[in-house]
Design a protein around this nucleic acid. Sequence first.
RNA 1: GUGAGCGUCGCUCAGCGGCCUAGGGCGUCAGGCUGUGAACCUGAAGGUCGAGGGUUCGAAUCCCUCCGCUCACCCCA
Length: 429
Amino acid sequence: MAFNAPRGTADILPDEQPHWELIRRTAASVAERFGYRRIDTPAFEDTSLFKRGVGEETDVVQKEMYTFEDLGGDSLTLRPEGTAPVCRAYIEHGMASWPKPVRLYYVEPMFRYERPQAGRFRQFHQFGVEAFGDTSPQVDVEVIELGWLFLRELGLKGLSLRVNSIGDSIDRPRHLQALRAYYAQHADELPKVDRDRLQRSPLRLLDSKEPESQALAERAPRSVDYLSDANRVRWDQTLRLLDSLKSVYPEMDYAVDHRLVRGFDYYTHTVFEIEPSGAQGQSTLLGGGRYDGLMEALGGQPTPGTGFAAGLERLVLNLRKQTPAESSGTGVQVVAVALGDAASQKVVEIAAALRARGVATVIAPSGRPMRDQLRFANSLSAKYALIVGQKEIERGVATLKLMDAEGGQSEIGLDVHAVLAAIGQRAAH
RNA sequence: GUGAGCGUCGCUCAGCGGCCUAGGGCGUCAGGCUGUGAACCUGAAGGUCGAGGGUUCGAAUCCCUCCGCUCACCCCA
């Protein structure tokens, strides 16, 4: 019997790595440009961290967590999201005493027990940023700007940004109540799926895919109409700050989406999502918002926070759409070809010296005809073949062959320095 | 958890009005060239046709069950 990667997981093979490396490098580069510093947290945490952080009633906690008991009897859970663990680390390491805001980012795998489909996996990767200790809308907008620049530097085109404000812990229940009342009046117009949903989470009716519900959602009570005066001002400031970004990012044509709601309980005030415009299904590339009550819920000092998470698999999917078939070479510069035992010994020495000086060098399988060894060099798309045979050993030279269409070759000295000089490579040390 | 589509060499596909001793392309390996690659030519290896059961003289082809994958819903990155 053969083994397969577990459902919803995937091997990332060498040919796909360039996309991943580009994403990881861009993430770090952009985050650090904004003053964010990297943090890594464990792949699993106390189960109760997520129950309290994400919310007992959310789908993620209810049915999507990889929870297990370890041999000591502790209940642990593979992290389904990154914000709660970072908050835990913030509290645990006394970051409250760091200069505010504390800016952190992470690139790590997440785990959710879901049925896989396009853009959704059981093990997936997120790039996330979190900024703690600053309530100003400026930081919300900074985080949005960071996300936008990140996607732009990846070369993704045709993105749309949607924003909304869902208010604070006082505004939200009022809005929710109004929403319930509204939908109660129109319950008979709802499809059955959504009538069930009305009980569980009325907010979800807003982004329902049922046509009847969408029509109703158009006229449903809007969260922004239930903001307190102060929060209303805050929201207006947020939008004005977003407008000021447009001089740098003319393509950033954001839209206020009153139906934008998010899946975790901890969100407050500003929430946002970025997706390819016109996309359907599991298409959100990056989503986040403010979460001012979370730190307190996890037992820390009241500390405001704001951030986002981006799904790396979905980014790869979109990158592949834009730039298909990226055949990546091996990056090997020199393949050393030896003919005979004496030559083999010399070639091992020269190859070692080349590598020690930073030149990617592979020795062709020994003991095979030169033709095979050159075929091997070609299959690695190496730039040069360094040929050492009996003739070369006797005369104390090596043959360096350029593996291009012409395949021209020249005779050089039988030592590293001659090779380095010939391939124009500056020694690393 | 619900629904739909699909499972044929490593990859990508043909064959699916039953007879196939299951093919092609790519890749791999070997030879053409025992010291010169990629091109080209020749050849080889590689498949219990997802698994099990049924119909039939005969099944990759028809039927059933299961498993897996994919897509969609729920929900989310």
